[in-house]
């Protein structure tokens, strides 16, 4: 007779181990579910009151009756800044990883790796302080240059000539924060690459550059995309550092990265929470948190799918 075979724990030690691990794994899922449920329950009144306008509109006004709470500009701002951060961080991360894995000598490799990992460990408040005190003035000068020569492009136009507090600067700050994440994933992918593939490319007359572009990058792309989406998750949720360098505005800024106004759900929550009206405004802020939660969840799920699809050859 056919029966199902399973590797069940048998001895009591094995059982104890098995159920402990299972409980630990399960608890993380339960935690995520509970956070979601809490946010949903507490923000439901606000969501019902505001309707779809909550994510599409761009007014935040507590004085009207009923009050208007809309986070469209913040939601879009979060996405825009994260996107900018990714555009800036990916080339840096890939270059740094390539250097560390394929070019650097042992010593330099160790030092560079440590430094970049250290960057990941820096508290975001420190990066925010550095951002406002050191980077923002420099970034504003770059912006001025870009605006001067490329200002005819709609992205780089400026209506106020104030180059501080722009999505551009916030994007750089976010890039600095996600370079360690993307590069640690990319470094891992590069160092696990089959060296024989690289040797094959070189033996066929490939240069270092063509080997990188035509063999290393395509082979590693799936993993790199995974790292990028991991970084995107962090970029979307970044709060304090962006709060320091960005001029938050409910006037939606679609793509004017050099305009001194932008949005970020997380920073907006931070800026409003302290003085929010517990009856009306707090539920709206929790709802904003819920939206951020969902967007991040979507990005991470997308990451899983893309990483899977990007390497069809892995399955063969």
């Amino acid at each position: 007779m056919r029966r199902k075979l399973m590797a069940k724990p048998f001895s009591w030690q094995d059982k104890a181990f098995f159920y402990t691990v299972r409980a630990a794994a399960g608890s993380s899922l339960v935690l995520v579910a509970l956070i979601f449920a809490f946010l949903l329950a507490r923000s439901l009144p606000a969501l019902q009151q505001q309707g779809l306008g909550f994510v599409t509109g761009s007014v935040w006004d507590n004085s009207t009756t009923p009050p208007l709470f809309q986070i469209g500009s913040m939601l879009w701002g979060s996405i825009l800044i994260a996107f900018l951060g990714i555009i800036l961080a990916v080339p840096m991360s890939v270059a740094v990883s390539y250097f560390i894995v394929f070019l650097a000598g042992k010593r330099v490799k160790a030092i560079a790796t440590t430094l970049i990992d250290l960057l990941a460990a820096l508290p975001s408040i420190v990066i925010g302080l550095w951002g406002i005190a050191v980077f923002a003035p420099a970034g504003a000068e770059w912006s001025q240059l870009i605006n001067k020569y490329l200002g005819w492009l709609p992205f780089f136009s400026s209506t106020t000539n104030n180059f501080l507090g722009t999505p551009f600067i916030a994007g750089w700050i976010v890039a600095v924060m996600i370079v360690p994440i993307i590069s640690s994933v990319t470094r891992e992918i590069f160092s696990q690459m089959d060296r024989e593939l690289i040797n094959a490319a070189l033996a066929l007359g490939g240069s270092k550059a063509s080997t990188f572009l035509k063999v290393i990058l395509p082979t590693a792309s799936g993993g790199i995309v995974g790292g990028v989406l991991l970084g995107l998750g962090r970029a979307l949720g970044e709060t304090v550092a962006i709060f320091f360098v960005l001029n938050l505005s409910f006037d939606i800024n679609w793509a004017g990265v050099l305009e001194s106004r932008g949005g970020s759900i997380a920073s907006m929550i931070l800026s409003k929470f302290g003085e929010a009206d517990p009856k009306t405004e707090i539920p709206a802020l929790l709802a904003a948190g819920l939206v951020l939660f969902i967007v991040t969840l979507l990005v991470n799920s997308l990451a899983a799918v893309i990483v899977d699809r990007a390497q069809p050859w892995r399955k063969i």
Partner: peptide, 21 residues
């Protein structure tokens, strides 16, 4: 060890050296 490029098709592998160089 046979080391064809995993991201490429059979035909692309044959032409890989020309692309690389």
């Amino acid at each position: 060890k046979p080391n064809p490029f995993p991201t490429m098709t059979i035909a692309e592998n044959v032409l890989a050296g020309l692309k690389l160089s």
